[in-house]
Computed example of a mutant assay.
Amino acid sequence: MLQTSNYSLVLAVQFLLMIYDLLANSFSELIFTEPVIPLIMFIIQDIGILFNIIIIFLMFFNTFIFQAGLVKLLIHRFTGTILVTGIYFVLSVSFHVWIQNLRWWNMRRYVWTSGLQALFVFQRFAAVLYYYFYKRTILCLGDPRLYEDSEWLRNEFFRVRK
């Protein structure tokens, strides 16, 4: 069971990873002086998104709902977060690979294709959705009803069985 002190630590780690992701998205275009600096920043950003995905699934596995076998209820409740996070991760990796390939040898030239611009817009839009859904999910997972047996859970269990 997730204790309050452990939840505070997990919540702090998740928020720090999201803040780094926000800062990397905000300032990545300003630091193209050496090709290695954005590469390292993008790698850390992508690893941070992966850590957030791992943490959220570990929190799912830790709930009483999951342990009671109501995985479908848990997935149904957080489908938006799972989908948006996966899409955002794919778009981020794609954008990072594409921009690094275009700018690795041409650091002095401004290289920006129409396809890259479209991917940039989709990735930033997905980032906004990711921040909203992920923050909402991690705050919802702090609900004590998810970690203990309750009347609400019993009603959901009988509703699913019918």
Rank of each mutant, 00 (worst) to 15 (best):
I56R: 11
A12D: 00
L23H: 03
F32Y: 13
A24M: 09
L50A: 13
F42G: 05
F51W: 11
L50G: 07
G48M: 03
P35K: 14
I49N: 01
T33S: 09
Q14T: 01
D46V: 03
I55A: 12
P35R: 13
T33W: 06
I53L: 09
N25A: 08
L22D: 13
S28E: 06
S26N: 11
I43V: 14
I31W: 10
N25H: 14
I40Y: 03
G48Q: 07
D46F: 05
S8L: 14
I53G: 12
A24R: 03
Y20D: 03
Y20F: 14
L30M: 08
M41F: 02
L22C: 06
L30F: 04
N25M: 09
L11H: 14
Q14V: 06
F27K: 06
F32N: 15
I40N: 03
L22V: 10
F51M: 08
L58C: 12
S5A: 13
P35Q: 07
L58E: 14
I47C: 08
S8H: 15
F27C: 00
I43L: 14
S28C: 10
L23V: 12
L17S: 02
A24N: 04
L22H: 15
F15W: 10
I37T: 14
Q14K: 10
L50T: 11
D46N: 12
L30I: 00
I54N: 04
D21S: 14
I44K: 08
V13Y: 00
S28A: 07
L22M: 10
I55F: 15
L9E: 00
S28K: 08
L16I: 04
L50E: 13
V10R: 04
V13F: 02
G48R: 01
Q14W: 03
N52C: 07
F42R: 05
F32P: 02
L16Y: 01
T33N: 06
F42K: 09
L39K: 04
L16G: 09
S8Q: 15
I49F: 11
N6V: 08
I47D: 05
N25E: 15
V13C: 07
F27N: 06
V36S: 07
V13E: 02
I44G: 01
I31N: 12
L16K: 01
V10S: 04
N52Y: 06
I55P: 03
V36C: 04
G48P: 02
N52A: 10
I53Y: 12
V10I: 13
Y7D: 03
L11Y: 10
S5P: 02
M41E: 11
M41P: 12
I54L: 09
S28N: 12
L16D: 02
V13G: 00
D46P: 00
N6R: 15
A12G: 05
I37V: 08
A12T: 10
E29H: 15
F42A: 09
N25P: 08
S26P: 00
L22W: 15
I44L: 13
N25W: 09
Q45L: 13
S28T: 05
L30P: 04
Q45H: 12
S26R: 13
E29K: 11
